[in-house]
């Protein structure tokens, strides 16, 4: 029998499905519980902890909110936080093997380093080139030639000059006062845009605008933003010896630790760090172990994981607190 607390606070992982998936702590649903909204209670319970902020990776915990709120953050990150991306491409010359539209599509997906807060949304009906308030202009002009010095080689890197078109060849052309904006350009220098052969040339001008992920995935500031619930593992009985080792193997490394039990002289399993578990449910394949553990996840503990492919926010002003 599960206690009411468990139903309220945990999502249960069973062998063939997940139970208690819905939050049920709305006012009046449980006798003896006061689920009415209370600012103080919320403030006490709500917590955001940043676990990791490294390069473009961010991991933080959000504790004490409902799934709907947590999901809203995720959805907003994906779809509604603006960023800058190439929207229009003027092709002056493209003799490469990549078709104009495909090249434009590729350029659109290149993450651009620019703080979208400094720009306006471009109003519909304006011409492509836009104004300095809403448009960034980039230029890419590459021509591939034969490397005269190269001899007796079949390596294209040596035979040709400029046979790879990379994002580092994209050149920002500041408009008006944009010069003061600082370092603007592609986030990564080594994204391959096209390959050329001698005589082929790409000459394009790109116009970046501010947009949101709902409109096109290229405007989404995150590569992905996601969360998972904090796993929780309970050992229902003591597990020792060979089965303890087997249990350890059933979980991700570091989840189950082994203690030396002084009384029996064998190894005893304990839950070291349930957070690391990937919920592979491998333990349910062992008939003797499957009743010895209870797998649950904490309903209101969300472990967010996001990688920001355009990270303009944190490196300028947004503090990690």
């Amino acid at each position: 029998m599960e206690s009411i607390d468990e139903i309220r606070e945990r999502v249960t992982i069973t062998e063939f499905g997940v139970t208690n998936v819905h939050s049920s702590d709305f006012p009046g649903n449980y006798e003896g519980y006061d689920d009415a909204w209370d600012q103080k209670k919320f403030e006490k319970k709500f917590k955001v902890e940043i676990i990791k902020l490294q390069g473009d990776e961010l991991e933080f915990d959000m504790i004490g909110v409902d799934a709907a709120i947590a999901n809203a953050f995720r959805r907003i990150l994906l779809a509604e936080v603006p960023s800058m991306a190439v929207e229009k491409v003027h092709v002056y010359n493209n003799t490469s093997i990549i078709q104009d539209e495909v090249l434009a599509h590729r350029l659109g997906l290149v993450p651009i380093r620019a703080d979208p807060r400094l720009f306006e949304y471009k109003q519909p009906g304006q011409d492509d080139e836009g104004t300095e308030q809403d448009t960034l202009e980039l230029h890419l002009k590459v021509r591939c030639t034969k490397n005269v010095k190269a001899q007796d080689t079949t390596d294209p890197n040596q035979m040709y000059v400029n046979h790879k078109v990379l994002t580092k060849q994209m050149e920002w052309i500041p408009k008006g006062n944009q010069v003061n904006l600082g370092n603007i350009g592609p986030v990564h220098d080594d994204i391959l845009l096209a390959k050329l052969r001698p005589g082929q040339e790409i000459d394009v001008r790109m116009f970046c605008v501010k947009g949101i992920g709902k409109d096109h995935a290229k405007f989404s500031p995150v590569a992905t933003a996601t969360y998972r619930l904090l796993p929780e593992i309970k050992l229902l009985r003591e597990i020792e010896g060979e089965s303890a080792e087997r249990l350890q193997k059933c979980f991700s490394p570091g989840v189950i630790g082994l203690l030396h039990n002084k009384h029996t002289g064998s190894k005893q399993a304990y839950v070291a760090d349930a957070r690391r578990d990937t919920c592979s449910r491998e333990v349910f394949r062992h008939d003797d172990l499957k009743n010895a553990v209870k797998l649950t996840r904490v309903r209101d503990h969300f472990i967010y994981d996001m990688s920001m492919w355009k990270s303009p926010y944190y490196d300028s002003s947004c503090p990690p607190d």
């Binding site: 999502v11 992982i13 063939f16 499905g17 997940v18 139970t19 998936v21 819905h22 939050s23 799934a67 709907a68 947590a70 999901n71 809203a72 995720r74 959805r75 969360y227 998972r228 619930l229 991700s252 990937t278 919920c279 592979s280 449910r281 491998e282 394949r285 996840r297």
Partner: peptide, 27 residues
């Protein structure tokens, strides 16, 4: 291989609904 990489051996994953934000009842 799946188990070695922390996945369920059947290939079934724990999935969260993108609309409600709550976990799906089935793997």
């Amino acid at each position: 291989v799946l188990v070695r990489n922390g996945f369920n051996y059947l290939g079934k994953d724990f999935v969260t609904s993108g609309i409600t934000g709550e976990p799906e009842e089935a793997y």
